[in-house]
Computed example of a mutant assay.
Amino acid sequence: MTETSTAEDRGAGRSARGSRQGNPLARFFNKIILFVRQVIDEMRKVVWPTRQELISYTAVVLVFIAVIMAYVVGLDKVFQWLVQWLFGSN
C-alpha cells in the first residue's frame, strides 16, 4: 500500500531542506567538510593490494608496455623499409 502525505507534510520537509538561511561561507565550509568525510569513508572501503599482488601487477604492466613498444618499433621498421623501397635511398 502507498502512503499519502498531506500538504503540511510535504511543505514541512521542503522548508527544512530548501532553507537558504545562514552564513554562505559556513555552508561552503560545511560542504567541504562533508566531502572530506565522504572521501575518508570511501577510502576505508577500498581493498588495498598486498605487496605480492602489487609486485605482480607492476610486472604485468611493464611486460605489456615492452610488448607494445616492440610492436610499434617493428611497425616503424617495416614502414621505413617500405618507404625506402618505394622512393629509393640516398
Rank of each mutant, 00 (worst) to 15 (best):
M1T: 10
M1W: 11
T2Q: 12
E3N: 10
E3K: 10
T4W: 11
T4H: 08
S5T: 09
S5H: 05
S5M: 05
T6Y: 00
A7I: 03
E8V: 05
E8S: 11
E8H: 12
D9A: 07
D9Y: 07
G11E: 15
G11A: 06
G11Q: 12
A12F: 06
A12G: 11
G13V: 10
R14F: 15
R14K: 14
S15I: 10
S15H: 15
S15R: 12
A16P: 04
A16Y: 07
A16T: 08
A16K: 12
R17Y: 05
R17I: 03
R17H: 07
S19L: 03
S19E: 03
Q21Y: 05
G22I: 02
G22W: 01
N23F: 04
N23R: 02
N23Q: 02
N23A: 01
N23M: 00
N23D: 12
P24K: 02
A26Q: 07
R27I: 12
R27E: 09
F28L: 07
N30Y: 03
K31L: 15
K31R: 14
I32P: 00
I32S: 08
I32F: 04
I33M: 08
I33N: 14
F35I: 03
F35E: 12
F35W: 12
V36D: 09
V36R: 05
R37N: 09
Q38H: 13
V39M: 05
I40V: 08
I40K: 06
D41H: 09
D41K: 03
E42Q: 13
E42R: 08
E42H: 04
M43P: 10
M43W: 10
M43S: 09
M43N: 13
R44S: 13
R44M: 12
K45S: 06
V46N: 02
V46T: 04
V46W: 03
V46C: 05
V47F: 00
W48I: 04
P49C: 01
P49V: 00
T50L: 00
T50C: 00
R51V: 08
R51T: 04
Q52N: 02
E53S: 00
E53C: 00
E53M: 01
I55S: 02
I55H: 05
I55D: 06
S56P: 03
Y57S: 13
Y57E: 13
Y57T: 07
T58P: 01
T58W: 07
A59M: 04
A59F: 00
V60L: 11
V60H: 11
V60P: 06
V61R: 14
V61T: 15
V61A: 10
L62P: 00
L62W: 07
V63C: 11
V63S: 09
F64V: 06
I65F: 12
I65V: 07
I65K: 10
A66P: 04
A66N: 07
A66M: 11
A66G: 03
I68E: 13
I68R: 15
M69A: 14
A70S: 06
Y71M: 13
V72H: 06
V73D: 13
V73C: 11
L75Q: 13
L75V: 13
D76K: 13
D76T: 13
K77F: 07
K77C: 06
V78I: 03
V78W: 03
F79L: 13
Q80S: 09
W81R: 04
L82F: 07
L82N: 12
L82Y: 14
V83I: 05
Q84A: 10
W85D: 10
L86K: 08
F87S: 04
F87Y: 14
F87V: 02
F87H: 07
G88T: 02
S89R: 14
S89K: 14
N90L: 15
